[in-house]
Amino acid sequence: MTLPNRSKIEAKGVSVFYGDNQAIRDVSLNIDQDRVTAFIGPSGCGKSTFLRTLNRMNDTIAGARVEGEIRLDGDDIYASGMDVVELRARVGMVFQKPNPFPKSIYENVAYGARIHGLARSREALDAVVEQALTRAGLWNEVKDRLKDSGTALSGGQQQRLCIARAIAVDPEVILMDEPCSALDPIATARIEELIHELRGRYAIAIVTHNMQQAARVSQVTAFFHMGQLVEHGDTAQLFTSPREERTKDYITGRYG
């Protein structure tokens, strides 16, 4: 690996509480610009919660509270001056279950660009939609039926549509929360390929409960357990010679 090692997001001492319940304990972790970071760990370990703190989607959950510091390009995203809408335009997100809007394929992709005023004319918007769908590897499959409903696509296509929707806003970071858990193996392989293609253009963090997937798509892996970051580092190194006993137990299938 000769990739440069620039941090896009720096998290320091992050704790998350849901009411009295602490979901994340003192996690410090950087997301690199050019390397895909995978979060692995057993169910309920806090990996999705941590991911959702990175674009403040936890704000929508009543009683959720975040402590610590998360910086995007050096700016504290929990600072009072940070606009959440602006933040989410810079840090896009793809969810576990494909959730296209019940609108046309075109509208799904154009929506973000439209509300952020990224396209001044119909032609410019068409170009944004085409580029986003092309980058998401969906253009050739849907270019003749952009007016069809996004919900009429197959599961894998819907998920790529959601990726295209995130890309269309021109984000700097893309967060993926178990993006393949509802997909069949072929659609999963297609998404994994796509992650490879998108690497470098966007900083990417992906939550997965599938260790093979983490090994295939990521260069950095972070292992979470019971709300703690147990270990993180180079993916190949973490899977072949984990430093911590708990990591070893998990990747060898003792629990999880």
Partner: peptide, 11 residues
Amino acid sequence: SIRDAALAVGA
């Protein structure tokens, strides 16, 4: 999920 989707693109 629809609300999440819209919030996540910065609505």
